[in-house]
Simulated assay, not measured.
Amino acid sequence: MASPVKSKPKRPYTVAVEGNIGSGKTTFLNYFNKHENVSIFTEPVELWRNCNGYNLLGLMYENPHEWSFTFQSYVQLTMLQQHCQRTHHPIKLMERSVYSASVIDEHFNWLTSYSDTSIDVIIYLRTMPELAYERIKQRNRSEEKCVPFEYLKEIHDFPRRLAIL
Rank of each mutant, 00 (worst) to 15 (best):
R126L: 09
M79A: 03
P9V: 06
P148L: 12
H65E: 15
L165A: 14
R86K: 14
S23Q: 04
Y74L: 01
E106W: 08
S115W: 15
T112G: 06
S68R: 11
V5T: 09
Y133P: 02
H65Y: 11
W110N: 07
E18V: 08
W48D: 00
R135T: 05
K137C: 04
Y54E: 09
Q81E: 12
Y133V: 00
F71D: 04
I91T: 15
E62R: 11
N20Q: 14
I164E: 15
K25Q: 05
S102W: 02
T127M: 11
D120P: 06
R86Q: 13
E36I: 06
E150G: 07
W110E: 06
F28A: 07
Y151G: 00
E95Q: 04
A101P: 01
M60I: 03
S118E: 10
M128P: 13
Y54T: 09
H65I: 13
I40A: 00
M1E: 10
I104H: 12
L80G: 09
T127L: 04
Y99D: 05
T127W: 06
F69T: 15
E154Y: 12
T112E: 04
Y151R: 08
I21M: 04
Q82I: 00
Y114A: 07
V147P: 06
P90S: 15
I122A: 11
R86H: 15
E46G: 03
R49L: 03
F32L: 00
T87P: 06
M128Y: 14
E144D: 03
S118C: 02
E95V: 03
A163Q: 15
Q85D: 09
T27S: 12
V121E: 10
W48Y: 13
V147E: 00
S97G: 03
R126N: 06
P64L: 10
K145C: 04
V147K: 02
R96G: 07
G24T: 03
L56T: 04
E46K: 03
K145T: 11
H65F: 14
L57D: 02
I155S: 07
H89V: 10
K92T: 02
N37L: 01
M128W: 12
C146L: 08
W48H: 02
E95L: 01
